[in-house]
Each structure stands twice: as C-alpha cells, then as structure tokens.
Design a protein around this nucleic acid. Structure first.
Lengths: 239, 239
DNA sequence: GATCGTTGGATTGTTTGACAATCGTTCCGC
DNA sequence: GCGGAACGATTGTCAAACAATCCAACGATC
C-alpha cells in the first residue's frame, strides 16, 4: 500500500483502468501492441492482481484491450463490438415493446444509405457497381447462409466508398444487431424478392439519380418495415 | 468443481457472463431490477467469486449490469456509454490521423439531422420550436459551461420528436464523444456566431422548408468542419 | 413524538497466495 | 533436418480473509 490517497468516490480498479488507457495513449501504442504483463502492471500501479484483472476485463469489454490466454495482453482493435453486444441485449430485453429497437434499427440503417445518396453515387465507380450487381444476383442463387453473407457485404460495400470508417463500422454493427435480434424474436426474413430490391439500388446509382437511389433504398427497407410492424402489432394484441 | 465439461475454447467467466444475461432475459427483468448477490451467483453457477466478479465487470462495462458498492448488483440502464467510452478512446488514439475520427463524427452528426429533415419538421410543434429558439438565444447570453449545455440540449431536442430513441441516444453519444475528444486534441470551439447558425435551423423548421432546413444544418456544421480540417492539415504538415 | 446519531448486518471492493490451463520456445532425440 | 517433449512465461481460476460502503433498525436525546 504505497500511495493511499485514494479517498472518497474513486474505485481502485477504475483508477487502474484510467491509467492503463493513459499508458496506451502516452506511449502511442497501436492495436496489437503488447501491454505489460499483469504482474508488471500490479507493480507499476501499486494494485493487486485482482484489481488489475478486473480493470483489464472492463477494457476488454470495450475492445480497448485484448487478452490472449497464456500469451499476453495487447491493445485491442477498437471496434464497435461493445455497441453490438449492448444493443443486441437491449433488443432482446426491450422494456415495454419488444420490437421497438428493431424498428428503430431499420430507421437508422435506412438513414445511412438514403441520407448519403448523393455522396455514395458520386463515390461509386464502375468496378464497384459491378461487384454490387454480382452480390445482388447472388442473393437469388445462393442459399441460406451465403445469401445472408451477400446481403451484409452489399450494404457494407454500398457505404464503403464514402471513406467514412465510422459509418462503415456502424453499418456493419447495426446489421449484426438486427440479424442477431430478429430471429430470436421470431421474425422470419422477408419473402420479398431481394434481387430486385437490391438491383434497383445499383441501377439508380449507375444512372446517377440520387432521388431514385433514395427511393430504391426506401423500397428496399419497406418489406422489412412491414414485417417488423406486423410482429409489433401482433404482440400488442397478444397483450 | 462440479460440471467440468467446460472444454476447449470456452472461458469460464464468459460462460458466467452469458448465463447472467440469460437470467435477466428469462426472468424479464427491467433496468434497476436487483440481481442475485455475488455469493448467490457463485453457488448458482458453480464458479468462484473471482470469475463471477470478472464476468460482472464485463457486463458493467456494457451497462448491462450496474454495481453499487455495499448495496448490490442491478440490471443496468442499457445506455450507449460503452460506445462513448470506446469511441472517445479511439478518437484520442487515432492511428495515422488524429482528426479522422473527429471528422467522421461531424459527418454522422450532420447526417442525423440533415437526413431526417422532413420527418423532424413535420414532428416539431409550436412549443417545441419556441424551446429551440430559447436555447439558441441562450447561446449568446450564457457563458462557458452553460453555453455548451444549451448546445447539447438543442441538438437533442432537435431529433427527439422523431420518437426514435436510438437516434436520440446516438446523437447524445456522438456529441459527448466530440466534446470529449476535441479539446484534448487542441481543437478550440468555433468562433462563429452560434446564435445565428442555430436560429437559422429553427427558422427553416418553422417555415416547413425541409430544403432550407437541410441547408441550415450543413451551414451549422460548416465552421466545425473547417476547424477540424485546418487542424488536420496543420498536423499533416507538422509530420 | 420526532429527530438525529449509532450500531449492526449485508454486500461489494481489495488483497494475498496458490495452482491450473494455455501458448511459444527451446531443447532433445532421432 | 525434423518432430515431439519439456520448460518458462502468462493468463485463468480458486480460496479465504479483511476493508469499505450502504441501508435499516435501533436507541438516545430533545
């Protein structure tokens, strides 16, 4: 017990967590860079291994730190995995209305594509459009899991040319949350023709028509909206 | 050591974490509901207190669980605090480009308001508009912290009438991240006239002109964009 | 009777020490 | 040269004890 001035409102493991974060920042470490071992951190920060470990677990949950059993602790990928896990759980719990989160998710996902229509169109080039077309086509031929993968890639590639990594990661995250929550709430995938709905988006982009692009995006999410609303309504009657 | 069939890739504390989440879901607990004590969880899940505590710390970081010292453990608020902390840290670390995250944040914040222009306008009523006007005015008279508070409330109230809690919380979260990161990167607040820029948004909303609304939103973020770009450029020259 | 301080129990926070599980590497036998 | 075995380092788990905190019940005082 060296510096015992930790009075009042401060929990030790939170102090440790802050100091580990500061260590990463001060040393300009990068994702993947190794961190001191637990014992070294204990000695450096003057805390027991339990406290250090609990602090590390907190940072691990935020993907600020990544722990490999038997190997060491490293700077994490700084992904949005915490958002995905948190939102997924909220979607499964959902006070009052089980489908509110799903409905709101669709709104945001649509907004990301519709609201960036002009920028997306001007950033998409020929090869990119061809890839999108291929993905749309594959949603007709592929089966089950592959179809889902194609859908995910399609929407990821749609916003990627924006060059905004945050938008790209949020798009992925919201897609992950939706596909994780929907089936566990008994929501079956839309039976509308996915090929046509996705190709319409590509077609509008190729034509450089941002209004048509926005309309196509809205049309793409319309059947999903309908399905969520139907399940929502069925639930409200059931109760 | 009772059920020792935890072979292979599964870590005990992760199993514990999953079972706590399932416990909350199965019992349909709500934010604020009490959870079993640590010792009860140890007995119920057949794990030591260390493992249970580390699992709880993981859930605590995601705001799935909330721990009160000396009192107990409860279901958390399911907020986006993990997103805020994670993005803030990423913004402070920022491999390669310190201002990339900041720049992307502005894009997303603008998108939330610009892309929902029509829906926001049709959802805003008279009293709501008056409140927004008052907030805009107070940015001229208020000082320091109060001015910042008014700005936050303004943008929160702007998207609130959408009725989409996810959008509202993301707006708050991104605002929090920006204001946490910007000063620590040496970015001083814009010296443009905030009253005029915010009032223009309200004025367009009152007129029911969604195009003017979108333009006003863009104009509002323009000086911030400029400032971020300038800092970004200054950094690229420095290196 | 009301109010305030005290006491006690319950619960989480922290420490310490030990051993298990995992991962790389190094070394050895072949 | 190559494959397996042993080893060291590191994280994972367990156990027991004590500290810090919160709350409520109790009691003293006014």
């Amino acid at each position: 017990m060296v510096s015992n001035e930790r009075v009042g409102r401060s929990l030790l493991r939170q102090e440790v967590s802050e100091r580990i974060k500061r260590y990463i920042l001060d040393n300009r470490l990068r994702p993947g860079s190794p961190l001191p071992t637990e014992n070294e951190l204990c000695a450096a920060l003057g805390a027991s291994r339990s406290s250090v470990r609990e602090a590390i677990k907190t940072l691990d949950a935020l993907d600020i730190v990544e722990v490999r059993h038997g190997h060491g602790t490293y700077v994490g990928g700084l992904s949005l995995s915490a958002l995905v896990e948190g939102l997924t759980f909220r979607g499964l719990l959902s006070p009052n209305d089980d489908f509110a989160v799903l409905s709101e998710l669709v709104d945001v996902r649509e907004l990301f594509e519709r609201g960036n229509a002009a920028a997306i169109i001007s950033a998409l080039d020929g090869p990119h459009l061809d890839t999108l077309d291929d993905l749309a086509s594959s949603m007709g031929t592929a089966v089950d899991a592959d179809r889902v993968v194609a859908d995910r890639r399609f929407h990821a590639l749609l916003v990627n040319p924006l060059g905004n990594e945050l938008v790209s990661q949020l798009t992925d995250a919201f897609w992950d949350v939706f596909t994780a929550v929907a089936p566990r709430l008994g929501l079956t995938p839309s039976d509308q023709d996915p090929v046509r709905l996705h190709k319409a988006i590509v077609h509008a982009a190729r034509a450089g028509d941002s209004l048509a692009f926005a309309d196509a995006v809205v049309a793409h999410y319309a059947p999903i909206r309908t399905r969520v609303a139907a399940a929502r309504h069925a639930q409200s009657i059931r109760n």
